[in-house]
Simulated scan of single mutants.
Amino acid sequence: MPTSAVPDLTALALLVAVARTGDLAAAARESGLSVQAATARIRAVEQQVGARVVERDRRGRRAGRLTSRGVLLVEWAGPLLSAADDLGVAVAALRPARDGGEPVVPVAVASAAEGLLPGWLAELNGHAGASRVVLVDTADPAGAVRDGSAAVGIVETAGPLPGLHAATVATDTLVLVVAPGHAWAGGPGVDAAELAGTRLVTRLPGSGSRPALAAALAAAAPDAPVAAPARELAADTAVRSAVRAGAGPAVLPQQVVAADLAAGHLVEVAVHGADLGREFRAVWQEGTSPQGTARDLLRIATGGRIR
């Protein structure tokens, strides 16, 4: 859907404030807008909806009550506004670190930052006294923790991690998906060698779940020739869209495609003979106990197991 069909976040937050205060002027002040600017925002929403969302008084001026359509819009906008708040917290973590000893969280692959950190950061934001978390770009998060440049890291590396404590924070499974009209849809599935030899829609080299898939296929079918990707895209959202449009199969995290599978937009294809499970671990220096924000983040990530 084009974004022009969706009211902007400020307008939606304004309508929520109208619903809560029952007064347009108060809602405008709360939203940091003049009454004139607030009225213009509401007018724009009503043009998009094609009907009034705020009631008028006898003189035709907007009152502080929502119409039935306005109520529905506010209810439907709730998850979007909550998600926007969480995104704001996550975006703050993208800003470069400043001097002052802020804790940092390096990530091994984009999938850890994409799928795990936003929820953790949103929960952390509600903790009193939490310092700002800064994400660090590094290909070696375990090394960054070992040399003391980071308090805690998130890794996807299997096997031992010398010099570090580690705790599992999440597991997921990669799934092979195709468009409903694909030849594999509804079939018996494919084996690891066939999948390795198939041109897939993938993320860019080294990003998302691509390294995990490459490792799993190399372990399951070490002698199988590996086909070049059909397309290489920057984000899972773009990969999903391409697969739905018929660009080819893709292997993505199960949680990423769950809604598409439930709606029938994508079809899961069984993969035989390959372990497509993944494990993410939080790591910190052996013999130490993270303090402050790093400790709180670990508690959130591990479900409270770090004490």
Rank of each mutant, 00 (worst) to 15 (best):
A262Y: 01
S209P: 15
N125G: 15
G181V: 06
A262I: 05
L200T: 10
A301F: 10
T202H: 03
S209C: 13
L117E: 00
R244I: 15
A215Y: 07
R305W: 00
G303E: 12
G206E: 13
L87G: 08
L33S: 01
G189N: 02
A11D: 04
V256A: 11
I306W: 10
S241G: 13
E268Q: 15
P96H: 02
V145E: 05
A38F: 08
V257Q: 11
G163C: 00
H182G: 09
L80M: 12
E30C: 12
L33V: 04
A38P: 02
V136P: 02
G32M: 13
E194Q: 15
T237F: 09
L117Y: 01
G100A: 02
V35I: 10
R52I: 04
P290L: 02
A77C: 02
G70Q: 06
A93N: 12
V226M: 01
G148E: 07
L121N: 05
V177Y: 07
V243E: 04
T39E: 06
E123N: 04
T157Q: 14
A242G: 07
L233P: 00
L87T: 08
V134I: 10
A250K: 04
V105K: 07
S209L: 13
A235F: 15
E114I: 15
R295Y: 11
T198A: 09
S207P: 01
A108F: 14
L164I: 03
G100S: 00
T39S: 14
P180A: 10
L174E: 05
A294F: 07
P2V: 15
G208E: 12
G264H: 02
V271D: 00
A19Y: 07
T168C: 13
A128F: 09
A44G: 09
G50D: 03
E114S: 10
V134D: 02
V155K: 02
V226G: 01
R278D: 11
R295P: 02
A214N: 13
S31H: 11
A220C: 10
P180Q: 04
T3C: 12
A51G: 11
E114Y: 06
V190T: 14
P249C: 08
V104N: 00
L135V: 03
T168Y: 07
P106L: 01
T67Q: 11
A84G: 05
A221E: 11
V136F: 02
G70C: 02
R307G: 13
R41D: 03
P188L: 08
A259M: 05
A63M: 00
L124T: 00
V267G: 00
S131P: 05
G197Q: 04
P180D: 08
T302I: 00
R56Q: 11
R278F: 14
P106T: 01
S34H: 07
V6D: 15
V243I: 03
R203G: 13
V243G: 05
G248T: 06
A19C: 00
Q285R: 15
P79R: 09
G187R: 12
A274I: 11
A84D: 14
I154Y: 01
V16I: 05
T39L: 10
W76H: 15
G22M: 05
A122D: 04
V190F: 00
T168E: 15
I42M: 03
A219I: 04
G101I: 06
